[in-house]
Nucleic acid binder design. Structure first.
Lengths: 156, 156
DNA sequence: ATTAAATCCGAGTATTTTAATAGGAATTAA
DNA sequence: TTAATTCCTATTAAAATACTCGGATTTAAT
């Protein structure tokens, strides 16, 4: 029941992008350095975010990435699902229409459990917008003093 | 963000035990057969449940397992945590006191996300008691007709 | 036109986790 | 005494994860 580094790194990357976007696009190398994540790996994560329409790539020199939408319109749920796939605790046809119908659907009781977990997770992450995190981030930066940079490798 | 077979099989095993307990203990081979789970594997799962004080083993011939508490006092959360470990989406010191304190705790913003997810999952599973599932199971059995047995291998 | 900075794309790989299997020791009712 | 059963530990095949690597393509700046 863990998120992978895809979700963890990826969310931090999008937040970094949102916080550090000015007039110009933000390059992957900048994000990778600030967040202490390998650029090669980050590349794969941002590809997923691009495919889901969360970020937009700008090719060529001085290129980079920008958010494809205003941060108010991007939920943490959108980001995590782009990176991790559907946030469902089990492969169950009652939760995922893509699955072949379950033979035991009639007598299955645990499906109620899986449904509750699924809904609670998705409600939670959809209730948080990227803009909320950006705001929180700016508050915290103010409190901690702008000088204090992010030098250490973070795992979550 | 998936439960493993430990959580899925294990919950089904406990439910099977709860539903099929009469005056005598229920043997693992019975549960394994009814649920279509390898007995050797189930053994490992039930060991975790025993360690967490959810079931009690009765050794020797005609032995088996019984619930260590009435099903009203066992939550699905208790069962899943016994099988999967803490239901937390990331290894973060803000969520798990066992972790070494995070260096970035001051400037970390994603921790708010992890906290919300953690709380929502645990609230959801702690709100469902084993007795709720047993009841549901009996309702469904009645509807489906008692004759219809669980012959197929179920994955969730 | 050339160069350098960047995204884009697909292949390969070491490590870890999962999902088992296997074998045997200990216990106890019949 | 036997058979049924829990209990315990070790091993292993397959899958997933978390990367690394090499190169093609695009484009702003010179």
């Amino acid at each position: 029941m863990k998120l992978t580094t895809r979700g963890r790194y990826g969310l931090r990357a999008v937040l970094d992008l949102a916080v550090n976007t000015g007039n110009e696009a933000v390059s992957l190398s900048e994000i990778a350095e600030r967040q202490g994540i390998s650029m090669n790996y980050l590349e794969q994560l941002i590809a997923k975010l691009k495919k889901s329409g969360i970020v937009q790539g700008i090719r060529g020199a001085q290129g980079g990435y920008v958010l494809a939408m205003p941060p108010e319109e991007i939920s943490v749920g959108d980001i995590l699902r782009a990176l991790e796939g559907d946030l469902i605790p089990v492969d169950c046809s009652e939760l995922n229409s893509g699955d072949t119908p379950c033979i035991n659907s009639d007598t299955c009781v645990t499906k109620y459990v899986w449904k509750r977990i699924t809904d609670s997770i998705n409600d939670a992450v959809d209730g948080i917008k990227l803009s909320d995190l950006v705001e929180k981030s700016k508050e915290i930066q103010k409190e901690a003093g702008i000088a204090e940079a992010n030098k250490t490798k973070q795992t979550c």
